[in-house]
Amino acid sequence: MAALRKFFQSSSPLKPSPAAMTISYVLLGLWTFFVLFPIYWLFVTAFKLPVDVNTGPKYLMYVDFQPSTHAWRELLVESGNLVTRPYRNTVIVGLSSAVLALTLGAMASYALSRFSYRPKPGLIATFILCVVLAIVAINVEVPWQLAVAAALSTFLLIALTIGRRFKGTMSNDDIAFWLISQRMLPPVAVIVPIYILFQQFGLLNTYYALIITYTAVNLPLAIWFMRDYFKSIPIELEESAFIDGASRYQVLYKVVLPLSAPGLVATFLIVLIFAWNEYTLGLFLSGADTQTLPVLVVAQNATRGPQWWNISVLVLLMIAPVFLLAIVLERYIARGILIGAVKG
């Protein structure tokens, strides 16, 4: 559509007809109200006294009720680092895992859209078997270093000797499906295993546990989205770059990534938001020092009932930086760099 409108602008002065514009504005206005009203409600609730919340709906500050900053004071001033500490943790964990997921995801999805892989199911089964054996071995009290080394060497041995005999191959689509299938199991099923995993590595109550988990959890999403963007980039551009003597990495870095900037930005925002807001894993993998904000939000629903005013304040505090980032990055999504590049 953007392209269409662009065309309209450049070749003829046509704009959407007044009727179309009116309908568009009405629809957009309705949705805007639907989106903004709940957020407005959060905003006013953040300034209400408990008694204002409990005695029926109050809509307007100074008209229906006198605003009070008691919830802000309670959370930000009176309870010390109650909010600032989780806030810092969330920023560190969210940003690091989003950057990592985007980087690894861009690399992988580029590879999946440009190379053809033929993984062999037989080899994969062998690998899983080796892992199972290693786990069994650890359970019968073989030192884990030894078990891992043995399993790895067994696998390599099989792969390098009889591995070529395995028939049947899978395709890129199967790899992609495997990746996305990692998101299918609800977190509650894997909490205890992941908890034990990080405990074995001594990473509980550190940022690494959360960053690694969120990166792994969000990678499949990043790969799937970017694969579509990369596919839509004309391969001719890359070929001409190769002719100019660029390496694969240079092509990726200098040609493909700039061209897919809208996709990168959209993907970055999404993985950041997912990591920023995640609750279940965050609750169990974070310890005393690494607790994240969503945990604090849920925690406001205590035995005395939800502390609506505190929840509102916390949600507003959480959304602010992400929203600012979205405003800044929105230009990139909107600009349509790709079109210009193809033409140029």
């Binding site: 568009s24 504005y25 969503p294 959480m318 929203f323």
Partner: peptide, 27 residues
């Protein structure tokens, strides 16, 4: 579409996604 003020809508429409899901439940 080429509508005046469309950037406003674009940013506003993204807002709900940025709230933490548990917060939205309470909201």
């Amino acid at each position: 579409q080429d509508l005046p003020g469309k950037r406003f809508f674009r940013v506003v429409f993204l807002l709900p996604m940025m709230l933490t899901p548990v917060g939205i439940g309470f909201l």
